[in-house]
Simulated scan of single mutants.
Amino acid sequence: MLDPKKLLDDLLGSQVPGTGSTVRDKAGQAVQMAKDNPLAAGALAAVLLGTGAGRQVTGAAVKLGGLAAIGGLAYKAYQNYKNGSAPAEAQTAGEPELLPPPTDTSFHPSQAPQGEDAFTLTLVRAMISAAKADGHIDDGERQKIAGKLSLAGIGPDAEKFLMSELETPLDLDTLIAGAQTDAQKLELYTASRLTIDPDTRAERGYLDLLAGRLGLPDALVDHVEATVSAAKVPASDKAAGKTAKAASKTAPNSRW
């Protein structure tokens, strides 16, 4: 049976409960066996992204688990936006403090009106849609991904779900409908931004379109950009040259 929360943890390389390793470690071993197409990082998201992964989430988010990490990042961005901080202030030296969203806010998973599992699958679909944004996942790439997913050891149900999503045409209306609250809309965008670093026009265009369809204010999007950039580090020396694209707008008071 598919476990949505475990799959989301796998995608972000979160700690596997009861073990001393992460899925990122397992996928890293898989990469060694797939020398014909080495990946920039070992997280399962890198399998979806191919060599474009570039950066990965830092330890604070990994330790929280995928659902709490996305909610925590979205909540942190929202708080900075509401407080009128400049987005650049969210980027601090070293790993930023990241906490789960408070239980009494709509960012906490327990507050999901459609249920945690249903919304978790929406976040996974958002990440997969973002991974497909630059159009590099064609039939040949999907075959390579299928082999690497098997090596990653995520289980047949998760493999089947991911491959089905990769083969399904983008349906932005359905994806957006999966976010039922303002907080969930922000989390959906945050998950998408976590998946990719918009280094191409196609990726940047997809994120801009998504933000627009979700009705997110530009200044709030800028805070997500800054917060996510601060939570990601180069995945390899090759990726060290990539710089985070911090925004410079000052946030007005929140409408939420």
Rank of each mutant, 00 (worst) to 15 (best):
E116D: 08
T120K: 11
A130Q: 11
F119A: 02
S106R: 13
D134W: 03
H136L: 13
D139H: 00
T122N: 13
D104L: 09
G115Y: 04
Q114D: 15
S129G: 12
E141L: 08
A118V: 14
F119Y: 13
Q114H: 06
F107K: 06
A126Q: 04
V124A: 11
F107I: 01
S106V: 01
D104V: 01
P102Q: 04
E141Q: 14
E116F: 06
F107S: 00
T120Q: 08
F107R: 01
P102D: 04
K132A: 12
S106T: 12
A133Y: 12
H108L: 03
I137A: 09
A118C: 03
S110K: 15
F107Y: 13
I128F: 06
A118L: 07
S129L: 12
P109N: 05
P113D: 02
L123G: 01
M127V: 00
D117W: 07
P109V: 02
D104G: 07
D134Y: 07
Q111R: 15
P102L: 05
A118Q: 14
E116V: 15
T120I: 10
M127G: 07
T122D: 01
G115A: 04
E141C: 02
T103N: 03
G115V: 00
H136T: 15
F119P: 02
F119T: 02
D104F: 10
P109S: 05
H108I: 05
D139S: 15
T105P: 00
T103I: 12
L121T: 09
A126P: 01
D139Y: 03
T122A: 03
S129T: 15
H108D: 11
V124L: 07
I128V: 15
P109T: 00
A133V: 04
D138E: 14
A130M: 11
D139P: 09
I137F: 03
D134H: 08
P113G: 10
D117M: 05
M127R: 12
H136Q: 15
A130L: 10
G135A: 09
P109D: 01
S129Y: 13
P109G: 07
R125F: 06
L123Y: 01
D139R: 10
T122R: 09
A112T: 06
S129M: 13
T120S: 12
A133I: 03
H136G: 08
G135D: 09
F119H: 07
D138R: 06
